[in-house]
Write a protein that binds this DNA or RNA. Structure first.
Lengths: 130, 130
DNA sequence: TGTATTCCTACCAAAAAGGTAGTATAATAC
DNA sequence: GTATTATACTACCTTTTTGGTAGGAATACA
């Protein structure tokens, strides 16, 4: 039941971008890592996943960096976490199927928990916490 | 966001004990590991945590084993999982406190998620799934 | 006293988490 | 057109966690 540094830092980055959301400016990872006291190199690696499918606007070079592509209210927390942490289900059998068949009493519980978690994170957006 | 084998096997054990709940009989770990196809030695180790604070009735020796001490409806899933997996909060800052102070926008989200998860698992009991 | 059981301690291998390091590539300012 | 400031890519590495195995001691009962 854990969200690791990848998920936490990804949220830190996204909240930073959301707080500084302006079509006029790109925010560099250096600025974020300096302000938040996080490893620049590690954030760079997290960005590889976070920016899959062109999730953000990017600009290289001088005054470059990252910028939200949509409004904060259009970025769900669930989507962000999944980008960097992978699937959020509490156990594998939710996606890969249960090998124990009908007799498994745990499965319905895990399904319920899975729904609870995912519907919560998918219904929250960056805008809800700024 | 993971429940590992410890948590899953602990539930398997508890559902097994609940399904075979009778004051007349103790269920041995051997019987459970055989029926469920799990490592006896590994289950033994899980029992060390699962039975902390005399959570179950135990009897050593011939025809010994484990037995529920209370009725299935009085064992919450949350309690069981916490015994073997430790705290269920998605991030450490929930219990150890947030080091980022008031500016942390992630914290309220994590608090919400933590409440969601814990109230779900604490309101479900073994009896709900038998 | 033999057998079936839990209890306790120690060890161990594989995987995941949490990074660091170096270089290539691109965009812009001058 | 070149120096500077960014991201992008590739490789490596250490520590912690996970998921076990192994062996013997203690206990209860037949």
């Amino acid at each position: 039941m854990r969200i690791g540094t990848r998920g936490r830092y990804a949220l830190t980055i996204m909240f930073y971008l959301a707080s500084n959301y302006s079509k006029e400016r790109y925010v560099s990872l250096k600025e974020i890592s300096d302000n938040e006291g996080l490893s620049f190199k590690y954030l760079e690696k997290i960005m590889v996943d976070l920016n899959k499918d062109n999730y953000l606007d990017v600009q290289r070079g001088n005054n470059g960096g990252y910028r939200l592509k949509k409004e904060p209210k259009d970025y769900s927390i669930g989507e962000i976490l999944r980008k960097v942490e992978g699937d959020l289900s509490p156990v594998d059998c939710i996606n890969k199927g249960c090998s124990r068949g009908k007799k498994c009493m745990s499965y319905p519980f895990f399904e319920g928990l899975n729904n609870e978690i995912n519907s919560f994170v998918d219904n929250k957006t960056l805008a809800d916490y700024i």
